[in-house]
Structure formats: C-alpha cells, structure tokens
Write a protein that binds this DNA or RNA. Sequence first.
DNA 1: ATCCATGCAAACCCTTTGCAGTCCA
DNA 2: TGGACTGCAAAGGGTTTGCATGGAT
Lengths: 155, 155
Amino acid sequence: MIAAANKHSDHEHPRPRSAAVVADIISQLSDLGYRDTEPRRLVISAVAAQSNPFTAEELCASLPCVGRATVYRGLRLLVETGQACRVLLEDHDLRYQLSHQGHHHHLLCGVCGASADLEVCHAEDMLREAAAAAGFRMSGHWLEVFGQCGECIED
Amino acid sequence: MIAAANKHSDHEHPRPRSAAVVADIISQLSDLGYRDTEPRRLVISAVAAQSNPFTAEELCASLPCVGRATVYRGLRLLVETGQACRVLLEDHDLRYQLSHQGHHHHLLCGVCGASADLEVCHAEDMLREAAAAAGFRMSGHWLEVFGQCGECIED
DNA sequence: ATCCATGCAAACCCTTTGCAGTCCA
DNA sequence: TGGACTGCAAAGGGTTTGCATGGAT
C-alpha cells in the first residue's frame, strides 16, 4: 500500500552524470522539433545541476549570461514536455525540479529544502473513488506533502 | 474509508441564510478583537454570497464601493482566522471560499467551477506513513482534486 | 533561406504597503 | 480618545510579451 521513496538530495545517491541527463533532454526536445541552442543547453544544465527544488529566480541568478525571458521560456518548455515539474511550497512559493518519473508527488523538507518522491500507490484510486462518491469524475489532482526530512529531524 | 461529500454549489441545497453566516463570522471576529466595520461586513457578505470558489479580483469587482486593499485585507483575515480557505486550481489560479469545516480538501469542477468537500478519512494517516517510510516527519499537506461535477458530466 | 530562439525592456497581473484620514470600542 | 480600519495610490515580485536581431536546420 505504501512504498518507500527515493531521496533526491545529493547527500546519498549521486545522480546520473549531469551531462548525460542534459544530452538526453536535448535529444528528446529535438525529437519534438525544438532546436538545440546554447542558451537552452545552459538552462537545462543548470536545472540538472540542482539537487533541491529551485525557483525561476534562482536559476536566473545562476545563469547571468542567459536572458531572464529565456530562462522562463526554457523552464516552461521543460514542464510542458514533462522533463521538469512544478513544486508548490506551503507558502505558495513556486519551484521547479527535474521529473524523475511520470506522475508522482513530493515530500518537501521545510528546513533544508530537500525533496523526495512520495509513492502512495493507491492514493489515486482512493481519490478517484472518493470523487465518484460525490458524483465527480476525477481528471487530475495536486498533492504536496510538507515536513522535515530525516537529516533535519536529527539536527 | 471513503466518505461522500456535500456539494457546495447552490444548485441543490440552499445554504444557511447568508445573513446568519455573516453575523456569525462578525461575531467570531469580534471575539478575537477585530472591529465590526461597514466595509468588513460588505466583504464578508460578498464572500458568503458566493457559491463557487472565487478570485480576489472577482470579489473586488462585486464590491465597487470597497477599496481593493480592504478586500484583500478582509480576505486574508478570513483565511487566517479559518473562516475561509484558499483553493488552488489546476492552472495555479488562486481562489477563495468559505470554510465549511476544519481541515478538508476540495473537488473542483473545471467546467462550471463548482466545488465540493472531499472527505478521505484515512488520507492523512496514509500520507504520514508514506512520509515516515521515506524518513520524513509530515507536518502538513496540500491536496486538490480536479475533474467534472455530476451536472457537467451529464451535459 | 527559413523561421525558431534570444535578449532586452516594457508590460502585466496580482498582492502588499505607506500614509493620511476615519471611525469603532 | 486611541488604536484599528480604510482608501488611495504607489510599490513590489514574479512572470510574460513585443519586437528586432541572431542562429539552427
């Protein structure tokens, strides 16, 4: 019923080489007809280099040579093509991170900002049933879980 | 495990008299030390008159005689005191509505905009367990369910 | 040679804030 | 009467857009 989650923070598992991730994304975008440009690559590299959910503004700051609009456009492109996902913090702060799988939810640490994927296998079925009980046909949902990660609990 | 929901749309159940709702809220705010003013009353009345989740802007438009800042301040006060809650639509459109109970979630119709309370009794426990499995201590969560309400499915 | 992508700046939207005047309690 | 509340307008932040230039295919 409940599955563990794999932590994304770089404390434990080094992620796949960033360059490979970037190349893969560029390739997928190319298949969709999007061009391979220098600024785009820089944006994607910067996204891939982040370990925790980040804001568009932070990304802009880390990419002084790329126009703000390009960063936002790149981010939107990644979200639209499913390469990245939006993460909404408790205070409605909107952040982004690479998608590590299809549809999933996030565990967000309010202390260090780390995120982990939350896998609640039957959550969707349960929500669908509850919606049906109210006469609704569920088409989607948004779920974020806030708290403290293991490391921050210890400290 | 799964409970039905009570629809808030005014199509079926007429809500308790708006005036009574307003008086009750004013009274509760008064207990908290907030003053009973004309603009505040107008804002609360307008909120109570809404059947579906509404935006702050819509509320402003329906209250041409009340300053925009006052509307926003009133809305914030209602949320902070638990009288109203925020509802986040799929496109990140932020809306508000009266709270009909303590902590709960919403079923939101993307067609007509109606909302209903979603009651998934064990959802919180399940999320807490899933979080614990990942080493997280859950302190809160955000959940919205999108879809179509019964009436819009028929049409 | 296309026409997509970029950069800049301005525009935009939504919300909050500063401040002087107003009005409950 | 004092402090909370209001209204206006201006500031704020976060994101998008218009447009001319530049670059990938």
